Computed example of a mutant assay.
Amino acid sequence: MSRLLVLFAAALAAASVAAAERPVALAIHGGAGTMSREALTPEAEAAIRADLDRALDAGHAVLARGGSALDAVEAAVTILEDSPHFNAGRGSVFTADGRNELDASIMDGATLDAGAVAGLRRVKNPLSLARAVMEKSPHVMLIGEGAEAFGESVGTTFVDPSYFRTEERWRQLEAAQEKARTQAHVPLPASAYFGTVGAVALDAEGRLAAATSTGGMTNKRWGRVGDAPVIGAGTYANAHCAVSATGWGEYFIRLAVAHDICARAEYLGVSVADAADEVVMRRVSALGGDGGVITLDAQGRVGLPFNTSGMYRGWVAADGSRGTAIFREE
Rank of each mutant, 00 (worst) to 15 (best):
D53G: 14
M217D: 03
V140A: 08
P23G: 13
P229N: 12
A76Q: 08
V270I: 15
A72M: 12
S2A: 08
L129A: 09
L80V: 09
R169A: 14
L120S: 04
F327I: 05
V302Y: 05
F86A: 05
A64R: 15
I231W: 09
V62Y: 12
G300R: 00
S153M: 10
I28P: 12
E145T: 12
Y312C: 05
V316D: 04
A286P: 08
G288V: 12
A10W: 06
V243P: 13
N125R: 14
L188E: 02
I28G: 05
A110T: 02
R54Q: 06
L120H: 05
G66H: 04
S213L: 09
L127M: 07
L4I: 11
E205V: 00
D160Q: 14
S213V: 06
D297Q: 01
D203K: 03
G247N: 09
R131Y: 03
V133F: 03
A76F: 06
A318E: 01
T166R: 11
A46I: 04
A201Y: 11
A18G: 03
L56E: 00
Y163P: 02
L202T: 01
S36T: 15
S271P: 14
A88D: 02
G59H: 05
G33E: 03
E74H: 08
A114T: 12
A9Q: 14
A9K: 11
A176M: 11
T218V: 14
L127N: 06
T34E: 15
S285A: 15
A64I: 02
A116K: 05
I294V: 14
L202I: 00
V270T: 15
I28F: 08
D71G: 07
C262R: 07
E205K: 08
H259E: 10
T95V: 08
A245C: 15
A210T: 13
D51H: 13
T156V: 03
W222S: 06
A298N: 00
A15Y: 07
S105R: 12
E266C: 01
E329I: 02
L304V: 13
A175H: 07
A130M: 06
L120K: 08
G234F: 12
R90N: 03
K179D: 09
H185R: 14
L304S: 05
A211H: 12
R322H: 04
E329F: 01
Y251E: 04
R169D: 00
G59N: 11
V133N: 10
G323F: 01
Q177A: 04
R99P: 00
I326P: 01
R171C: 00
G151E: 13
M281I: 05
G89T: 01
F94L: 15
R313E: 06
L52Y: 05
E45H: 11
W170R: 13
V133S: 07
P229K: 07
A15G: 10
T218F: 08
Q172W: 04
R264F: 04
A175S: 05
Q177R: 15
A72S: 14
